[in-house]
Design a binder for these strands. Sequence first.
DNA 1: ACCCGATAGCCTCACGCCGACGAGAAGGCG
DNA 2: CGCCTTCTCGTCGGCGTGAGGCTATCGGGT
Lengths: 234, 234
Amino acid sequence: MRGNLFAVAVDLVVLTVRHDQLHVLLVRRGERPYESHWALPGGFVRADEDLGDTAARELAAQTGTATQGAVQGHLEQLGGYAAPGRDPRGRVLSMGYLALLPDIPDPETTNGPTAAFLPVEDVYGLAFDHDVILADGVERARAKLEYTTLAAAFCPPEFTVTDLRRVYEAVWRTEIDPRNFQRKVTSTPGFLIPTATRVTGGRGRPPQLFRRGPATALHPPMLREPVSMAHATT
Amino acid sequence: MRGNLFAVAVDLVVLTVRHDQLHVLLVRRGERPYESHWALPGGFVRADEDLGDTAARELAAQTGTATQGAVQGHLEQLGGYAAPGRDPRGRVLSMGYLALLPDIPDPETTNGPTAAFLPVEDVYGLAFDHDVILADGVERARAKLEYTTLAAAFCPPEFTVTDLRRVYEAVWRTEIDPRNFQRKVTSTPGFLIPTATRVTGGRGRPPQLFRRGPATALHPPMLREPVSMAHATT
DNA sequence: ACCCGATAGCCTCACGCCGACGAGAAGGCG
DNA sequence: CGCCTTCTCGTCGGCGTGAGGCTATCGGGT
């Protein structure tokens, strides 16, 4: 009566911005199949565990941080991947999860497999269908920066407007006018909360430090395409 | 080594607009658990079937229409639901799928279980966690109307601007100014393609008939909230 | 000490989209 | 023929955004 049985795994697309470039956390597989290939970190769902629990547990295990519910960081479900044959070992359904983190050091390679953040642009040839999951995660992140305040999830607890702008520029691979960007984000109620401190040691005028505000949505959204009203096709 | 095994099902949130009201397709369960409760239509994933295949198959079986890839209609993945205990029979992961259809008659109740489109507002107490899946699907549909041309998926192949506006009003439960709406949708390149025919028999000036255009995104999006720029907090 | 480049932050202007609304066009109905 | 309804086009003002000028304030070089 039931359909076939699946093993259910959770694979993480952990994104961060490092050196003004979008990076993704990958692990080098130490076992077959796809031995010594890069892959998204992940693991199987345990008994009495919900999908989000598995994702949070794997994320904490890979990064050593408890990002779930914290002010910084973000974790959300991406989608399910269950194409027949995606895993040569048998029928495996993988739930993709998207995590956005501030720039943290690469995890220590002590007893586990090698793990590192790599620039997203350089990544291809991942194990299984992880190329597809990664592409979906990156696209989701790009889209969400448009109409949410999630860019702050890439930033440390306190950050400057320029830090935030560099996140947008890295994720979207575009350039944004600093002055208009500043007007946009500082005029959105609840996006940024100014702190009393400023940053010294930089090269220019000391910038203001901000914290994440309670706002989650951007109305109206931040447009990434230079909306050309030229009639394209018809 | 593998985690526990799951049965994997696909549950459909099939939405349509009938009588200017958002409706969802439900089936009355004829077996335990939740016997005689309303539930989302769905079924288990077969061997050698991908999730989307299962969703399309179930959708065709329930509605008798092949909406996949057709000009009208829309089918997309919603998310995975796998909370422990969501199915008393054991560990079941359900992939929610969202389908948007033009108004079609209720499926014939011949040999299968009773199926009918019910107004979304009146629906509660569904089997399993289907209330949550339904709520997620409705919210997804509402959000997607903002920045995509998916509203046309609720319409027959040829429709008027008013038909399209009533879709927005039904899904968002708002009222939209017909003149501004007309300007917006007709000035978006590739959204609507005018046909040569007009509709007669109505009560006012005969409206123009349109077909869906190739455009899928709305730039800039259609805003549903009356964006009040009054400085709220801070 | 001084200048200069770089960054942060504020301001102005122009253009385009949108909400509010008026008015004409084109049909049905009594 | 009036009258109502609905479709369609136009107008006006406000707001957000792109473009860009300008000042403040640092580090670093001469």
